[in-house]
Design a protein around this nucleic acid. Structure first.
Lengths: 245, 245
DNA sequence: ACCGATCTGTTACCAAGTGTTACCCGGGCG
DNA sequence: CGCCCGGGTAACACTTGGTAACAGATCGGT
């Protein structure tokens, strides 16, 4: 599982930085945000795995923000509040929160819930957490991760290089979810040791995607499966069926 | 949303029938089960939307059952327990429970959580939150929002850019209603978060309208469909028929 | 260790999309 | 008749992604 990217939404700078630090120390990428506008900016800008949303935000209401976000977003949301009555919890659930934690909270419990929410979203968005080898079928193609072979709809066997294999697996693990170039690069480098985490603003990913397209897209000019999200990254845009061996 | 089918797992007959009744009275189909074997039988037999799983099951442990179910099942699970310590809750989350409720619980809160868990699983199981795709027909033209293609009355295929697509969708959604440039600009920028709605009265919309006209107006000099409302904005001036796929 | 085949990242160039600017036209009005 | 205003649009600039070509890295066989 990749490193979770968590958006911390709180108007109190002290609590915000406390939460941010806590998350960072436990292996998350924590991104601070202050209100709905900045949440939406982050959502538009890149992948967010989870939102930690304080209910009391001074001028804005966390409940209202959650409700509005749910109009078009499915990102997991955990609400945090000093209010712990059943009525308040129900309000949170009613507007689509995935979980509700009362302050003061046990950090361990917070992480347990974060893990639970993330595991659940992985579970539901197919198979990312399954590490066993499997056979994938998509749009007539077959990818056997055990044999590392790709079979075209016409039955031709296509050989993939290591990098191409890793790219395909990353995409298959997240169908319909846009992956940024950074995320793809991270997924490619899990095998060999991470080098400079710097923004090596190279075009390696673009080139790699092009090479994979040349192999598994019937017509690379009109990508059906491996679609480009301009300004964002790439998406595997067809449904994927998984078979356990 | 269809009627939820809930599996009630408890070894205490009294509590089980109490829960079952409570759920039935509130519009659920409640199915009683007593242990892992009977849970799996139900899962194999038909659709189950949610499992209510008591932690204390006499000879079997709810935590262990949950853990084993999670090896191959992604059905939402809410655990119920008399134990409410952080440690116990964490154990529940750790084995993949979607939520954890301590006894005695407020029935309203239980239903709020059931709704939350079900809404979430709808959200994440793709389709539900995916934007509606449809086919629009107007003045002999066809716009397929799924393929993002426009078919002219003569049968020629016209490709639209992203912006042009967004503009056409905004217009199709409001036939015969004049849209101001600000409104159109707002509709175009939903994807990439734009900042201040400041002055910046550029001519981007005008140019974009011109480009769209060049593609879908038979004679751009005499616009029939995409009409200009002088001093106001633009109107889509023909009737639009929508077909759900 | 040597050699060739393959893989992979970088660079450079190209095409497409989009916003801005500048200039044009036409109509309403003095 | 000349002026102004609103809109049309050509031309340009800038950004983003696709990809060919090149060079270094890797790997396997001898």
């Amino acid at each position: 599982m990749t490193i979770p990217r968590v958006l911390v939404v709180d108007d109190d700078p002290e609590l915000r930085s406390m939460l941010t630090q806590l998350l960072q120390q436990n292996g998350c990428i924590a991104l601070p945000a202050t209100g709905e506008a900045s949440i939406r900016k982050h959502l538009a800008a890149g992948r967010i795995d989870l939102i930690l949303l304080d209910v009391m935000l001074g001028d804005e209401s966390g409940v209202e923000i959650c409700s509005r976000l749910r109009e078009d977003q499915s990102v997991p949301i955990i609400m945090i509040s000093a209010l712990s009555s059943d009525k308040d919890r129900m309000a949170g659930y009613a507007v689509g929160a995935d979980d509700y934690i009362a302050k003061p909270f046990n950090p361990e419990l917070l992480f347990a819930r974060i893990r639970a929410v993330r595991a659940r979203s992985h579970r539901t968005s197919s198979l990312a957490y399954r590490r066993r080898k499997a056979v994938f079928r998509f749009a007539g193609w077959t990818y056997d991760s055990k044999q590392n072979e790709v079979l075209s709809p016409e039955g031709y066997l296509v050989a993939l290089s290591r990098r191409e294999t890793a790219l395909l697996q990353a995409l298959l693990a997240n169908p319909h979810i846009p992956l940024t170039r950074q995320e793809i690069a991270a997924a490619l480098h899990v095998t060999s040791d991470d080098e400079a985490p710097s923004d090596s603003e190279g075009r390696a990913v673009d080139v790699l995607v092009g090479r994979l397209r040349a192999k598994i897209e019937a017509n690379p000019k009109h990508p059906e499966m491996l679609r480009t999200e301009r300004g964002v990254g790439y998406v595997f845009a067809v449904d994927v069926a998984t078979e356990e061996p």
